[in-house]
Design a protein around this nucleic acid. Structure first.
Lengths: 401, 401
DNA sequence: TTTATTTTTCCAATGACTTTATAAAGTGAT
DNA sequence: ATCACTTTATAAAGTCATTGGAAAAATAAA
């Protein structure tokens, strides 16, 4: 049943607008809030008083008089409430307590042992959250738990629909968490959440349509459309890694041919390096890995590249070429105003970054690249839990810091 | 400035919910509306009476008693208000007066002479609307004018940003029309509008994410995401025709390589037929065109195909192959639940339709094709103005008939 | 000191909603 | 046929978040 209009609705809406105004423009006086938003001073006063009672806002001294009584400034109190962010990956469960600005107050990492999959990993996630909640005081001020996970996630119903590595299939994690902890819970896809966090906390404020592309072990993408995460019909959108870029390319596990992931993700790079080595090509990677090919990692690759290794440079050229085709397709379809590149492959790889940027700007349609910007990720170490926080804050407050 | 909450807002919302309920479930009694939507009977009564005064709703006899007083049924009156739909194409301006169910009451077609471009075509559009408005009575019951046009259109600001054939660049058509006619005006891209109309009037009701693909003179696509049109950052989204499907393909005018449009749109087909003829291949098309290659049209091609012409069959195979790659990419990115195929190339071409369907279902990712449906267009002859109506009705009433 | 101005708050009025009550019009058992 | 009960529609009264106007508080400028 649709939400109908009643007095509670308009109050919620106005409280929300007023809080957002304080957050964005604070410290600010009650009078200025009223003027800025076209709400009567009376309403602002009562709303602000309530927000002060809730601990979300506090008075903050007096401002400069403009010819009369000095204004009493009010400011946003990000520590008035908090939330729990949870990130599930193949290697670790990261859990953090964060305030309303997604600043971490405490964080714990629960390692995932190899082979911990299916029901067991879900139990481990829930047990880890329970453990974490021990160290949290005043649960009444907790807005809820936000969980992000790789794979195909149906955010609306809170179900992990599919994750091949963790062997998850239709896991109603949101309901499970809500029942166990009695806290409202959100669940979303990791790349989408990171894209949202990049927009809201990472300086993508002016970009209503933002594309996040990550290249590492695999290829992922997250899409923010009109300010909120774009999800497909049942959450399964943005499988950028499995878009065809070469119709005469190699067959992929997914059933298609010429999938992007097969050309630019680490497994492809690794096998490219091996084949170069076996063909006797001169490359620094084997030296840097002490002759042990199992020790060829991203870092080794990056190091060789920085030292001018030709094999690595050729590989980067090829990655840039394939990735650019994929990104051009996305640009022509979505017309984003900001593209953020992340992941191990692009980190500390200025050459690749610039090559992609140049090629996309040249090949995408003219009207699409006007004003199109490229940026590396800026979220830093806590990006996973920040991403989780972004999902919750967007839903509760439409926050974009 | 954001809209703030006031009493008017809740009234508008409730009126809207009540009207929508009557439209969807009518004839229905006031009491049933109240129960269905959780609004008090009193509110429903006063809202319905107002809607009756506005001519949007009428009483419609009495229903069966369920043990008490007989209910007075009310029903939706689609003719209570009307709207003007305008479609701009390279060959004609089509204008229609339609009711709230997008049923045409009158329609005129204003032919566009070749070479009528730039400012002149815009003047011609406005003059045509003025002419059409002469034959409309009671402008006070007109909701407004909705215009759809090909090219890159910024719906939010009402500007045609770019149209190469009509030589339009940053034309603020919405403002021009509003100023001249004093009627609220909408402006949107044609393919997007058609996609929305297919969803709202064409039986795509259950599909919140719908993809519309048209193949004819060019390749176009429209995308409905979460029930409303997906537009890029400044309206320029869905340039499906210029997504790369073959990285080693031919260079396109747009600056990219291997663009879909170069393989599946009519100009490509036409030159393919010509080259077959000049190479002396046996084909029916020349016979059907009376030996005059300028008379080779879609119809000729279709006819030859239906008569089992091998050259045409091979071409259809190739179109299906390329188009499927493009659509698979879209499916993997957007995860739509319904794909609607339209345009001259697909009309009356069951073979192509089925081949695309089969190939996409086989090559797209497994989780994406679960429940994915394919359908041909169902809008019929007035599809252009119906599409325009869909844009307006969606914005004013969120209507989906 | 007086006056004007700005900020904040109190209070009554507004208006759209809900609840409660009432009337109208029916069903069905006695 | 009568009476008890339902269902539908509307009228009257009550609720509550808003607004506008007035008052109070605090300050600058004359």
């Amino acid at each position: 049943m649709r939400r109908t209009g009643d007095l509670k609705l308009i109050q919620e809406l106005n409280r929300f607008i007023i809080l957002d105004t304080i957050r964005q423009f604070g410290p600010i006086s009650r009078s200025d809030i009223a003027k800025k938003q076209g709400i009567s001073p009376t309403t602002v006063t009562s709303a602000v008083n309530e927000l002060i009672r809730d601990g979300m806002v506090a008075e903050d001294g007096t401002g400069e008089s403009k010819g009369g009584r000095k204004p009493i400034m009010v400011r946003f109190c990000p520590d008035g409430k908090f939330l729990i962010g949870v990130s599930i990956t193949n290697t670790a469960i990261t859990i953090a307590e964060m305030n309303l600005e997604a600043a971490t107050k405490q964080k714990k990492i629960y390692p995932v042992k190899a082979g911990l999959v299916s029901d067991l990993i879900i139990q481990y996630v829930l047990d880890s959250i329970e453990d974490f909640l021990q160290s949290v005081d005043d649960v009444s001020r907790c807005l809820g738990i936000s969980i992000i996970a790789p794979g195909i996630v149906d955010a609306a119903s809170g179900v992990i629909r599919f994750n091949s590595k963790l062997r998850l299939h239709d896991v109603p994690l949101k309901d499970m968490a809500e029942e166990r902890f009695g806290l409202k819970t959100w669940l979303d896809n990791d790349a989408n959440a990171i894209a949202l966090a990049e927009k809201n906390f990472g300086g993508g404020l002016n970009a209503d349509n933002l594309l996040f592309v990550t290249v590492g072990e695999g290829v992922g993408s997250g899409l923010v459309v009109n300010g909120s995460i774009f999800r497909g019909s049942r959450g399964g959108a943005g499988e950028f890694g499995h878009t065809t870029v070469d119709r005469s390319g190699m067959r992929c596990d997914c059933g298609n041919v010429g999938c992007l992931e097969n050309y630019v993700a680490w497994p492809a790079i690794y096998s490219g390096l091996l084949s170069a080595v076996t063909r006797g090509k001169e490359t620094l990677v084997m030296d840097l890995a002490d002759g042990d090919m199992t020790r060829i990692t991203f870092d080794v690759f990056r190091q060789a590249l920085h030292q001018g290794d030709q094999v690595c440079q050729d590989i980067v050229d090829e990655i840039a070429s394939y990735l650019s085709i994929g990104i051009v397709n996305l640009v022509n379809l979505f017309n984003p105003s900001l593209i953020i590149l992340g992941g191990e492959m692009i980190r500390d790889n200025q050459v690749l970054f610039e090559r992609i940027q140049k090629q996309v700007m040249a090949q995408a349609m003219g009207t699409m690249v006007e004003g199109l910007e490229f940026r590396p990720t800026v979220l830093g170490a806590d990006f996973e839990v920040k991403a989780a926080a972004a999902v919750l804050l967007q839903d509760v407050f439409h926050f974009s810091l």
